[in-house]
Every structure is written in C-alpha cells, then in structure tokens.
Design a protein around this nucleic acid. Structure first.
Lengths: 116, 116
DNA sequence: CCAAGTACCTTGTATCACAAAGTACCTTAC
DNA sequence: GTAAGGTACTTTGTGATACAAGGTACTTGG
C-alpha cells in the first residue's frame, strides 16, 4: 500500500463524472478531454480514457460521430445524450453529498485538535 | 451501468481516508466507526470495513489491541501509527487537490451555462 | 517510400467495495 | 446448564475499474 495507489483509488468513478461534465458542454474528442483534465490537474492516460468513453457510449450516455481532420486521422467527436444528462445530474448530487460527508469527518477531526 | 454503481466507484479510496481520520482521533472499534460513518451519511457494511481495517493494519498504518467488553465478545480497538499519520497527511492533500480539480470542471460548466 | 506525428484500440494486472455466509464469544432466561 | 439472541470479527466470491504496455491505422513531409 502506497500513496500513489491511494490516489488512484480516490479518483475512481470521479473521472467518469468529469468526462460527462466536459462532454456536456459540447462536442469534443479525446485529446480535447485530455487537455482539459490535465489543466485541471487530473492526470489521465489514453489507456484509461478510451475504454471509459466506450463504456459510456455502450451505456447510452454518449454518442459520437466521425469527423475528418485537416491534419491527421479522423476523430471521434462525442456528445452527451438525454440519458447522459440525467445520469450527470445524479452524479453531481452524489459528488456534492460525498464531499459534504468527507468534510464532516475532516472538520470533526479539526474540532478535536482545537479543543485539545 | 447504473447510478448505484457509479456512487460505489466514486467512493473508492475515500472510505480509507475517512477511516484513517476517525481512528486518528483516538481508540475506536469497528462499531464506533460504523456509527460515525453512518451519521456522516457514508454507508458502509461490515464486509467492506473489516477487510479494509485488516489491509491498513497489514500495511503498518494501524495497530490494534483486544479489549474485553462488559457486554459481549472482546473488541479490537484500533489506533493510528506514526506511519499512518504521515499517510493520512498525504491523503488529505490528495483529497483537497481532487476536490479543487473537480470543482474546477464543474464551475467551468456552470460558467458556460450562464454565458449562454 | 518511409519516418514522424496523431488518434484510436486491446490485453493483462492489481485493487477495491460489496453481498452473503460463516465463526466465535457473551449474556439472559428458563 | 443449556438454548436463544445479540455482538463482533472473518472469509469467499463477484463485478467493476485505473493503468501500463503494446498495437493498429491514417496523414503529412522529405
């Protein structure tokens, strides 16, 4: 058990949430997503992103279309579906509740330190 | 793919963090932890908690001692180790960074909605 | 033609939460 | 003293997922 693995575990499921968020704003392809996740300091590699996109598509949360590129191979541009939007709403609520719960735990520890 | 599973995945690794936090405050046994997690609205079941405690102990982050109970079988009271405290500090930093990253993504979506 | 860059895909591994079923100890009531 | 019920801890098997590593395919420029 090391801290790197703990970080990986902590991020589980949250990537899915972030990807849905990004795609909900408009058409994007994988490299766009990687850029945004990187700038938000959420490191992801291709081997994680592509299977995740395929899962979301197979579940009906996303759709894509091929678009020719003027500088390289064609790209898959993703859009979110109606089902995907509903799912995103649910995940957003889960995220809010989860962070509130964690902060409850953290703040209780802080309160204890202060009173000691 | 359903929302329940997404919630499970989102919580991965975060339980570990919360457990370390709770134990860092002083000696507790499993039922104490379950009570606190429940009151923080983080649902956990025995089949999740006990293996987690064993993992943390085997990694040297926790220690325990048996304590006789006046009303039932003996209990394992856990305390955090020096290594566990260091680990907790690292996880706390990871949690803060992670929530900031996610909020960056979320707020960017909100900003887009507002400007539209 | 071929080297380099871009984009997408696949396989195998390690890890984890959970359900479900099981083991063991203690107290109470008869 | 023993049966029943509650408390506490444990184990096994399943499904899901992030990641590393390697692979396929298309395009452009020399």
């Amino acid at each position: 058990m090391n801290i790197e693995n703990a970080q990986v575990q902590m991020r589980k499921g949250i990537l899915e949430f972030c990807i849905l968020h990004i795609i909900s704003r408009g058409e994007v392809y994988a490299s766009d997503m990687l850029d945004e996740l990187t700038s938000a300091k959420i490191m992801v590699v291709e081997g994680t992103l592509y299977p995740l996109l395929t899962r979301l598509k197979n579940s009906g949360l996303l759709e894509y279309k091929w678009v020719e590129s003027s500088s390289g191979p064609p790209r898959k541009y993703y859009v979110i579906t109606e089902t995907g939007l509903e799912f995103l709403t649910g995940m957003q609520a889960t995220w809010v509740e989860l962070s509130e719960s964690v902060n409850t735990i953290i703040h209780k520890t802080e309160a204890l330190k202060t009173s000691a």
